[in-house]
Design a protein around this nucleic acid. Sequence first.
DNA 1: GTAGGGTTAG
Length: 552
Amino acid sequence: MLTASTVSSTAVQDLLSQCKTFGHIKQLHAHILRTVSGHRRNTFLFNLSSSSSSINLNYSLSLFKSIPSPPEPFLFNLLLRNLSRSDEPRATILFYQRIRHAGGRLDQFKEAFKLFEEMKCSNVMPDEMILCNIVSACARSGNTRYNSPIYEFLKENDVRMDAHLLTALVTMYAGAGCMDIARQFYMKMSVRSLFVSTAMVSGFAKARRLDDARDIFDRMEKKDLVCWTTMISAYAESDHPEEALRVFDEMRRYGTEPDEIAMGSVVSACASLGVLEKATWVHEYTHRNGFESSLTVNNALINMYAKCGSLDAARGVFEEMPTKNVVSWSSMINAFSMHGEANDALALFARMKQENVEPNDVTFVGVLYGCSHSGLVEEGNKIFASMTDEYNITPKLEHYGCMVDLFGRANRLPEALEVIESMPMAPNVFIWGSLMSACRVHGELELGEFAAKRVLELEPDHDGALVLMSNIYAREERWDDVRKVRRGMEEKNVFKEKGVSRIDLNGESHEFLIGDKRHKQSDEISAKLKEVVSELKLAGCIPDYGSVLVDV
DNA sequence: GTAGGGTTAG
């Protein structure tokens, strides 16, 4: 590669632009050391460091370190630009921190960032393009803790906010869920791209602010498939499946046809709708439109059929799939678990193993969920242990939740409590809530009160915990306490959320609420229910009225 | 130079 014996600046620049491999870099490095000295050597080394940062970051940094005198700000910028384009957003962010402070977390980049200290002395100001890259690198890192220092830096230095920088800022804040700040920047923009508007819609959707999301969406002059999909999945995930399907219809009226991602969201909307007729309709739709082999769509269909009550149809989709991935297996396992078929779930888990499909953490949630709902305590316990022993998967909060449920449902409450105490993370409302429900079902008032109090610490208006507390006090005839809890609930407008059950028969929807006589066959249904309950009693089952809120 | 969506669980 190297032929010139005398090295001019342009020759080195030429050679630099030819550096495509690590070997080239090392060759050129050696050449510069042999043939150039003084200030020019420093400049060449710096250029080499910059252009090698995309090939070998560590080497680039050690090159940088070897430069004896601090380079000019321009050169710092060059390196920073290359760094910020690399796939390692953390490098940029830590680098950025180095510019401002000596502190900050140093791990694998520790060595590299020692030298960035020098930048503080060299009075460097990253240019706008680089700042834009830094902000976007920060967004990609997904760590919100860098947001405000970067913004403060922009403010302190009175950086001009152009469309690029604003887009990057909106994306960063929207991605971090800071929607009010994101909106401030969004409003400053005179021209708003599809990208930045979609980022806003998506951010509001994730923050469960659907009206704000819809507002941005409705004001968009142009809409493409991605932003339609964002709006559809926003409704689907926020339990507004009807609205999701309405937006889907509107999209097609506009002449936009779905791809498999959009289709997956639509299927998912039908899953939360829970209506089998709609499910079969969407299934046929996917076939008519060429999605019959789509992994994503088929995975969503398995889940949809399971949630619409048709385990057979779910199994049908699963078995027919030309290719399956871990999501397909997990979805089918969960489908069995959901329907109380833990043995089928376990059998499928075993088959998955035979076919050498590696389970992931979600797979285990499905398996454990099945075990807990079918009372397979020992089996579930073994599987939980195998996560760490065999599969090298660290149990998450959800898995501990399943274990609390597993022991709790089986009336093995001390062990359920042990699980909570052994957790490496702080238990959340669902964990304590699970223990609380188990205590309620099994009449363990003392532990139940303890669990309910933990729930209320985390969520003071938790309806279930307040009702349980009031019922526990009522049982102990502590009427003052009962009144206190009840009055508190009234003042804060907390009501036990009423569970509605719905069944769709022949295209007609039938809804039932507690104490509800609206249905035209209400009397017949009640009579049949009584009959079933008395048969259950004969078979040894005792109905549980413990959770019914008694009006005091 | 910037930059947007999805399927399993919870």
